[in-house]
């Protein structure tokens, strides 16, 4: 697929994130601003143009924070709150409702293993175990080299291809414990 030439406002709040370029050692510092430059302002304006209220831009802007910085820091929440006339507490309330907003930096490769029913029937928990073993981490913890964060995740919506593993923004399907070392090798 070709790169977007210019971002259409219709999709401005819906850009993928979870990329190696913004995670691990590439994570932005806590106080990295979101809307201090042309790109940030433009994104903000485009997103706001799609909703009748400023508040509705909250999820799109949290997505943007994560896309840009790799995680959603407290200063980022405050900055978003300021732009949307919300309190920081309100943004905190919303951000913590969802599981995809990382409130601290994660490894360069965020590995999320589905262990929900269909995947569990096909060995999801063993796949998770294997990833933890190979990366030497515990669930949710980032490996010392900053490369991997392995987590259990709920249904990823690809149940016919169990076990499903999401590595950053990509799905790996029909994953078996045996395939785990190979997947990790491909990453770096």
């Amino acid at each position: 697929m070709s790169d977007e030439v210019e971002l259409h406002p219709a999709v401005a709040g819906a850009q993928p994130y979870m990329r190696a370029e913004t995670q691990g050692e590439n994570s932005a510092p806590e106080d990295a601003p979101l809307f201090d430059d042309g790109a940030g302002r433009e994104r903000l304006e485009k997103v706001l143009s799609r909703y009748p209220t400023r508040r509705a831009a909250l999820l799109p802007l949290l997505n943007y924070a994560q896309e840009r910085n790799g995680w959603v820091s407290r200063p980022a929440m405050k900055e978003i709150a300021g732009e949307l006339d919300l309190t920081p507490a309100y943004v905190h309330s919303v951000a913590t409702f969802y599981t995809m907003y990382n409130q601290r930096p994660v490894g360069k490769y965020l590995i999320q293993v589905c262990t929900n029913i269909s995947c569990d029937l096909c060995g999801g928990e063993e796949v998770l175990e294997r990833f933890l073993e190979e990366t030497g981490t515990r669930p949710g913890e980032t490996s010392e080299d900053g490369l991997y964060t392995v987590m259990e995740v709920e249904c990823l919506g690809a149940c016919g291809f169990a076990t499903v593993v999401q590595v950053n923004d990509e799905y790996y399907e029909d994953v078996t414990p045996e395939r785990v070392p190979e997947i990790l090798d491909e990453l770096d």
Binding site: E4, H8, V11, A14, Q15, P16, M18, N63, G157, D169
Partner: peptide, 20 residues
């Protein structure tokens, strides 16, 4: 769209942009 569907989101975004 659910957030985890990054591949879907890319495809859909492209299609929406083109449809516009």
């Amino acid at each position: 769209v659910r957030g985890e569907f990054f591949e879907v989101i890319r495809i859909l975004n492209r299609a929406v942009t083109d449809a516009y």
